[in-house]
Every structure is written in structure tokens, then in C-alpha cells.
């Protein structure tokens, strides 16, 4: 059930990237793709009844190891989120340059203008 819902979110992102004609909508589609993939990685690392991977001071190490969730996908996703912000900023810069050159955000009109 949860895997299917995550796949639907991914599919909506692909639809936004391929079908939309406005540059801002394409950027939003990329952001939705980013969210879906990050969420999928975190869902893989979850265990039922797990605790967060942070040791407190009066806690047994053996008990902690048997109960905590997987820390490796969290580390990968932490890197991926910051890269997502940088990529979004680069997209916005490219979109602003295209708007300065052609005066519109619509890519089908830009195609006609180039002729």
C-alpha cells in the first residue's frame, strides 16, 4: 500500500516534468521527484517500534543496537536534500536568463520565436 502511494507521487513528478509547458511548473515537477525519492529511501530504513539513532547517556549499548533504525539511508538523504536546494537555485537562474532573453516562461512560444 505504502509503496504504491510512493510510486504514484513519483509518477506525478514525471508527468509534471514531461507534459507541462511552463518553466516554473517544470521546476516544481523536479522538486516533487526529489521528495518522492527521499521519502522512499527513508521508508526503507524504518523498523517497527524503532527509536532514533541517537544514544542517550544512561542507555545500554546492546539494547540500543537491537532497537534503533537504520542510520545509513538517513545519512544519504541528508546529503541529497542540500544538493536539491543547489539544483533548484541553478534552475531558477537559468529560468530568469531565459525570461530576460525571450520575455516569456512558456517553452512552446520560445520554440516559435526561435523559428
Amino acid at each position: 500500500m505504502i509503496w504504491i502511494l510512493t510510486f504514484i507521487l513519483f509518477a506525478i513528478g514525471v508527468y509534471g516534468v514531461v507534459c507541462k509547458r511552463n518553466l516554473v511548473k517544470i521546476i516544481l515537477g523536479f522538486m516533487i521527484l526529489d521528495y518522492a525519492i527521499n521519502l522512499f529511501l527513508i521508508l526503507i530504513g524504518y523498523r517497527k517500534g524503532g527509536i532514533a539513532p541517537i544514544i542517550s547517556q544512561n542507555e545500554n549499548l546492546q539494547e540500543f543496537v537491537s532497537k534503533a533504525v537504520d542510520p545509513l539511508p538517513q545519512a544519504l538523504v541528508l546529503t541529497s536534500i542540500v544538493i536539491g536546494l543547489a539544483i533548484t537555485a541553478l534552475f531558477v537562474a537559468i529560468a530568469i536568463r531565459i525570461y530576460e532573453k525571450f520575455g516569456t516562461f512558456d517553452i512552446s512560444k520560445i520554440k516559435e520565436l526561435k523559428g
Binding site: 527521499n38 527513508i42 521508508l43 524504518y46 524503532g50 527509536i51 532514533a52 539513532p53 541517537i54 533504525v69 538517513q74 538523504v77 541528508l78 536534500i81 542540500v82
Partner: peptide, 9 residues
């Protein structure tokens, strides 16, 4: 989902 680091970021 017990990932407080990711939630803050």
C-alpha cells in the same frame, strides 16, 4: 519515521 536530523534540514 524517527529521523529528526532529516526533519530539521
Amino acid at each position: 519515521l524517527k529521523a529528526p536530523d532529516i526533519a530539521i534540514v
